[in-house]
Write a protein that binds this DNA or RNA. Sequence first.
DNA 1: GTGGTCTAGACCACC
DNA 2: GTGGTCTAGACCACC
Lengths: 123, 123, 123, 123
Amino acid sequence: MPLDFDPTRPIYLQIIEAVKKRTVQGIYQAGGPLPSVREMAKETGVNPNTMSRAYMELEREGFITTRRGEGSSITKSAKRIDRERRTLARAARDRFVAEIRDLALSRDQIDDLLREILEEVTL
Amino acid sequence: MPLDFDPTRPIYLQIIEAVKKRTVQGIYQAGGPLPSVREMAKETGVNPNTMSRAYMELEREGFITTRRGEGSSITKSAKRIDRERRTLARAARDRFVAEIRDLALSRDQIDDLLREILEEVTL
Amino acid sequence: MPLDFDPTRPIYLQIIEAVKKRTVQGIYQAGGPLPSVREMAKETGVNPNTMSRAYMELEREGFITTRRGEGSSITKSAKRIDRERRTLARAARDRFVAEIRDLALSRDQIDDLLREILEEVTL
Amino acid sequence: MPLDFDPTRPIYLQIIEAVKKRTVQGIYQAGGPLPSVREMAKETGVNPNTMSRAYMELEREGFITTRRGEGSSITKSAKRIDRERRTLARAARDRFVAEIRDLALSRDQIDDLLREILEEVTL
DNA sequence: GTGGTCTAGACCACC
DNA sequence: GTGGTCTAGACCACC
């Protein structure tokens, strides 16, 4: 969990994104446990109230389930997780396209670029 | 020219990047004039000294030429500009790869993503 | 470090030359420390900004290396220093030739002059 | 005649040196005429009194002779002129030696330097 | 302590 | 008008 949040955006949103990302990356397992609110709050130095809000939102979205006295766990649904994966991928894609679009790259340069990306990602 | 600089990075570096980017994008023409140091400083709200530093760096890199009393102009070399284009493209590629790499995308998802990028960029 | 700068030439350039000269002469050692920007500025009565500019140039030329919080040191490369030595020698040679050339010296006078120089320099 | 005098040294001395130098270089001929004080003063923008002082000093040194109503002329003595030549050469030599001496040049570098000087001067 | 960056404002040279 | 240089002084990051 990153301890350095972007101060210009709500921390609870950044926590939500981090949990989703870690799950997509396999750091948190589908159906597996998530650290408790208190634990996670201490680890990140965030106020427990803020952390609790992030968990509640994740629950509302169906990404985690929380049971009183048992803590929280990641959704068991591989489909649900893959939906996040695709969302993250699309966001990265859009940022990349925005950066690249106006560079007036030649068709060859674009092809090279995509080939390089493919190589490095499937490495 | 963006009026909102990232406060965590030197302004003069961000100006350098902006000038290069604008040239690569065709906003500034190869061989064409660049606003004077003072003009650009006023426009962006940056101190003339800071702007001057950015221009001096650009001159040293051979990206612009400056003549006392006449102002500055973008390099005439299409090669030099294309070098910058490729540098910008590579940087964007690396950021994208870093974002994508750990998402555990399937081969199909990667292919889709690259296809979408190609479409949107060659649009 | 000379406290009397030629007012017709940029001080930071004269500082750069002085540092190089002192290194070539062995006053500053290859790989050895250079006084801090502030120290040197106080010693010479020059504004720290001007001194900093000189140091930045020297760094860019690869003649010194600077590490934040640790100060600057002369290049370890004897080759780099010798390059400067030859540059200084060539400049002195050119000034001398310019002074001598139009004096219409006889061949004997020239030979004498060079012999005297050799004697005094290898003294 | 240079119109830009070194403001840190007496102008009349610089005029004396210039006349001697021009004679050594053959611009003024042995036994030949020198422009009148007034003419020279106007040409150089120097006060006629200052110019007159320079001429008087040159006369006192036996380098020129002045006859009322006829103007001034350079000494007829080739020996006298050659004495100046050697003085100028020695001064240049000493400045060169002073510049070179502390550069810690290797014997080979010194030899190269002198060879280059010989080539360029006898060119 | 160290260097890095920035602002503010001055004066100069070149045009 | 243009850029080039310098001073003065501030605040920051790294150590």
